[in-house]
Design a protein around this nucleic acid. Structure first.
Lengths: 340, 340
DNA sequence: AATTAGCACTCAAGCAAAAAGAGTGCTAAC
DNA sequence: GTTAGCACTCTTTTTGCTTGAGTGCTAATT
């Protein structure tokens, strides 16, 4: 059901004020600070109704009201007055992205960094698994006769650390030829496409069979590693905020933030089809800690969602600032990725 | 001045008991649990003397005694009975190091990981800046006519992410030749040595001058980045320990542990020439937080100290376990590095 | 000269009762 | 529908009191 305009106004005031002061909001505070035209008794009736509807809660009978998770969600999607960044902040964002843009990972790293710095919350970014990343080039570094470090460059990133074994009998020239063969065959293709390639190991090819299989194996490990691709910044920023004055809250928060796989699943799980997803932890056993909020957005290239970025912090978060920063960073991020 | 045997014994008991129980140790506890032959009044006199000497402190007049930083240091260097690891633990250490050993960084990473897991403290490792790392091989990935990604492999690690600009007029063949020239010239040399090489750009060489200069530039950035080489594991392990029930303690701890450059300077600053260095934070403005302890050791190859590894945790730390783990890991670490 | 028993003293920690204050819900009047 | 007024609830803070652990000191003992 749709809320009356006055209810919306009051709810907005409560959320605004609570975000600002961290103190439960009383009817008196509302009339005195924001709505001198009506009396506190009227506001009390409205607050009571909003509580009935699930948007507000009371810590105890004689305390002011605190927004519920639903209230924050509504606030972000409808109630909140959008913030604008200062020219200084906008310039700062732009300046960060001027740095080298040769691979998506470093672009995303910059995005995550700037988000954390401007919002003062822990920021995160995940890039899609990369099944659509395009193969660019392969090179081998032969360290010993039987092992080589294989380097694969995609349009997204460079992968190293994949050691493969090669037949010791193979000469360096043959290895070189193998790499140019692979380059010719795979170049420009996505991982999905590469897997479909029917390899015809005829006589001119047969010597490279092991290599090919090993390279594809290396590619598979590349696409399998997902937690690796979680980028975070400002893991300790949450301590700056008043809610984290309690040891258990801190433990809860850290137990999530220090586990990249947890962060990954939170960010990639079902997102509603709205611009900014807000997820707030309710009980203690969910993926997100109690009273902890995750605001995230996806970025796309050519209409394909290829990653998610956002912030993690207390439920009582400065959503105006956060959304403004995410919005602006997102725009630049997409424009850079589109122009590649 | 040298302590009497009895004082040493009592100090050892106090530290042992305090590490075990986290409760200030009373004269009564000492006589009842460990020294039934003498009376508590005698112990009290000794405790009083040890306090006078700076080894013990009292929280208030009617509390038991707590070891001072000096007491912990003496404990580790002289008083403590060395712990032995179980066969299971030893096997675990060995098993971890069986993994790929192709570069020092990954070996150190394993060391740090195993230390954190066995001790349950945050562990750290830093490798020397690398002026003695040996150049192995260079390769160029030409992305655009005017830029290339340069990959340099040393005996320690692989460095990527160094983009250099190349003259667009240069053909791929010339670039290839440049890389084999560089390989021939630099191979097996340390950074120091490379810097000393007098480059004679005679006619056959002159075309590669820009490349050479750019490569050396890339090497310099490599050696300049130092905080990068701080490896850490178990950043949230400290929360497991009783001392971190206080928010300010947590903040202090995290403010150090999340800043790699701080950890770096703590680990690399003046170490006494003993096997296990113990540094304990005293006041709040030092590099190390109050009541926080850092136990570290260096590892060497051919008599050259090339890195430091250790743990960070509360002053009331299980030094027996920590030293035993560090000792064993250090041995394996050095044997692996020596055998390269 | 070192050790010990005994005792007074100190201080933290826990508890209960009281006081203060903020905020609500309800009711009756506007 | 709105509002003033008031009783009621619940938290927070303060205060005083009690308990108990542990020490330091002193005088007696070995």
């Amino acid at each position: 059901m749709e809320l009356s305009e006055r209810k919306k106004k009051i709810l907005q005031i409560v959320v605004d004020d609570y975000i600002d002061t961290a103190v439960p909001v009383s009817s008196k505070a509302i009339t005195e600070k924001y709505m001198s035209s009506i009396s506190s008794a009227t506001v009390r009736a409205e607050l009571s109704a909003l509580e009935e509807l699930g948007y507000l809660t009371q810590l105890h009978t004689s305390s002011g009201r605190v927004p519920s998770p639903d209230a924050y969600k509504l606030y972000v999607s409808e109630l909140m007055i959008k913030d604008k960044l200062t020219a200084k902040e906008l310039n700062y964002i732009k300046s960060i992205f001027l740095e080298k843009t040769d691979n998506i990972e470093s672009v995303l790293k910059n995005a995550v960094k700037v988000i954390s710095e401007l919002t003062d919350y822990t920021s995160v970014g995940v890039h899609s698994k990369g099944e659509d990343d395009k193969f660019r080039q392969i090179k081998f570094f032969r360290f010993k006769p039987e092992t080589a470090l294989v380097l694969i460059v995609t349009d997204v990133k460079l992968l190293k650390d994949n050691y493969i074994s090669i037949p010791p009998s193979m000469t360096d020239e043959q290895l070189e030829e193998a790499s140019s063969l692979i380059n010719k065959l795979f170049s420009g293709k996505t991982f999905k496409e590469i897997c479909k390639i029917e390899l015809d190991f005829n006589e001119s090819f047969i010597g490279y069979k092991t290599i090919f299989i090993n390279v594809i194996e290396a590619l598979k490990t590349y696409f399998a590693e997902d937690e690796q691709s979680v980028l975070m910044e400002g893991e300790d920023k949450f301590l700056k905020h008043a809610e984290y004055a309690d040891v258990n809250r801190i433990k809860e928060f850290l137990s999530v933030v220090t586990k990249k796989e947890k962060v990954f699943s939170i960010l990639t799980e079902d997102n509603k089809d709205i611009k900014f997803n807000v997820k707030i932890g309710i009980d203690d056993d969910g993926a997100i800690p109690k009273d902890c909020s995750v605001v995230s957005a996806t970025y796309s290239v050519n209409g394909n969602k290829i990653g998610t970025y956002g912030v993690i912090g207390p439920a009582r978060m400065d959503y105006q600032k956060v959304v403004a920063v995410l919005e602006n960073v997102g725009k630049i991020l997409e424009s850079i990725l589109a122009g590649r």
